[in-house]
Amino acid sequence: MSQIDLALQQDESTSEHAYASRSQWKMMVSRFKKNKRAMVGFWMVVFCVTVALLAPWVAPYDPIEQNMQIMLEGPSLSHPFGTDEFGRDILSRIIHGTQISLMTGIVGVLIAVILGVALGTISGYFGGLADTLIMRIMDIFMAFPSFLLALAIVSVLGPGMINVMIAIGIFSVPTFARLSRSSVISIKDKEYIEAVKAMGGSNLHIIIKHVIPNSIAPIIVLSSMRIATAIITAAGLSFLGMGAQPPTPEWGAMLSTGREYLRVAPHVSTMPGLAIMFLVLGFNMLGDGLRDALDPKMKL
């Protein structure tokens, strides 16, 4: 009898707990789901990620295998997106290119988030000289047009996708640093931070356990939007020959080589262009939706 009672009690408390801690999360998910544009963006991104993960299996052809007999052929049943100047299947190249674009976007933004949040948090939390120093350096970075800055960094580091990721990471750092600085400043004087100080928490403890978790929401939103920018920038750099080197199936590089055949075979550059548009649009709509779902009052 008592055991049953105990079990009942326990059941009650756990279900209550589950309800309680999920309510905030649930509210966010339901807000997100109600937003049609956000859901479209979400599924676009999910689609691209799935394609990227399954690329070797879903791509009908080898993306770098050349076949000179079917150069620059238009879309057909065997090659739905047509073939390029070396007779490679454009669909397969775009599918494999998804991997590269997603990777550069995500890794680039990850670098920016890590560096930006670290710098922004330090400068917002401690203020004073560290703040002035860090933010003035960020201002210098921000004074350059972002694409030119990325281009300059890649020119210094040398072409290649890894360097493109680093360049994208660096040129996005100031945006993240500023955003996290401002959101850290808005919470660092809250009483719950003071309470942790009063109980003897070190600055590191306060930053890791309270400041960053409470200031991360706008960072998440900005990240999803910056991934879109990063993908465009990476494609742009590859378009200029500073990114992926042939025969890597990178969208920007494909767009660039297709340019020469724009009159005879417009599909060669149109198809990767559409792919870029699709992915970027997906991330932007996802980001907008996340912003509205995480905090309807957030201004970004």
Binding site: K190, Y192, G201, S202
Partner: peptide, 22 residues
């Protein structure tokens, strides 16, 4: 000082701001 802090604590005015919402 951090070690000594455990002997003196504070109760704050605003119960909405003094607990970490996360």
């Amino acid at each position: 000082l951090r070690k000594l802090r455990k002997n003196m604590q504070m109760v704050f005015q605003d119960p909405y701001a003094s607990l970490d919402p996360r």
